[in-house]
């Protein structure tokens, strides 16, 4: 199997910074590291398996209703994941809360099914789905790292910036409130895209 299927979505064809898919959730869930990581994992699982299932039945799907078929499969997977989490990992399911529903609307899932799984064999489709979820997760974690560090002074809920630095305790430091608002994430995504493009020849338009 071609290694490219796994490597490309992580950098050269990263769903967020290059394909610009899944931006909405990248803005919404990256105020803290913990939900960002849980979201990244869930999306990875759902993209992987939905690509796999759609690829299995790709030759039988009537073309006119293919988007509906894809949605039904994705929605089923998301509900299953949600139900299983509620039964066996209640704590995690509470953290995910509204995100589980949001996964269905994540453009990456439909994007990968349309662009890849419909025309490729099940195993490469599974790898493609997982890799795209991973590439998405990487950016999510990077954003959440910066936003949580500067917005809340914590990382994964643990205080990193010394409490004595804060001006309320007589220090000089203040958390940057802007960081926890969605526009900050948009600007950070923009910066990441800028940096990635200026260092990658393949991405520079002529």
């Amino acid at each position: 199997m071609d290694k490219k299927i796994f490597i490309e979505p992580i950098f050269l064809k990263n769903p967020i910074t290059v394909l610009v898919l899944g931006i909405c959730s990248a803005l919404a869930v990256t105020t803290k590291l913990e939900p960002a990581i849980v979201m990244a994992l869930s999306v990875t699982i759902v993209t992987g398996f939905s690509s796999f299932i759609i690829s299995l039945i790709r030759n039988t799907i009537p073309n006119r209703i293919r988007i509906i078929v894809q949605l039904v499969v994705v929605a089923m997977l998301v509900i299953l994941v949600d139900q299983i989490l509620q039964a066996y990992a209640y704590e995690v399911s509470k953290q995910l809360s509204v995100f589980v529903g949001l996964i269905i609307t994540n453009c990456i899932i439909m994007g990968r099914i349309e662009a890849y799984a419909l025309g490729n064999k099940p195993i490469p489709s599974l790898v493609d789905g997982l890799a795209n979820g991973f590439g998405y997760g990487l950016i999510l974690v990077a954003l959440a790292f910066v936003r949580e560090l500067f917005g809340s002074g914590t990382l994964y809920g643990i205080q990193v910036i010394p409490l004595s630095w804060y001006s309320v305790n007589g220090g000089f430091y203040e958390n940057n409130g802007f960081m926890i608002l969605p526009p900050a994430a948009l600007i950070l995504v923009g910066l990441i895209i800028w940096i990635q493009r200026s260092f990658t020849k393949e991405l520079i338009e002529k």
């Binding site: 105020t31 809360s97 509204v98």
Partner: peptide, 12 residues
């Protein structure tokens, strides 16, 4: 306090 679906990192 607990919530069903407040925004993580903010209302949550």
């Amino acid at each position: 306090f607990a919530h069903k679906g407040e925004t993580p990192g903010l209302g949550a």
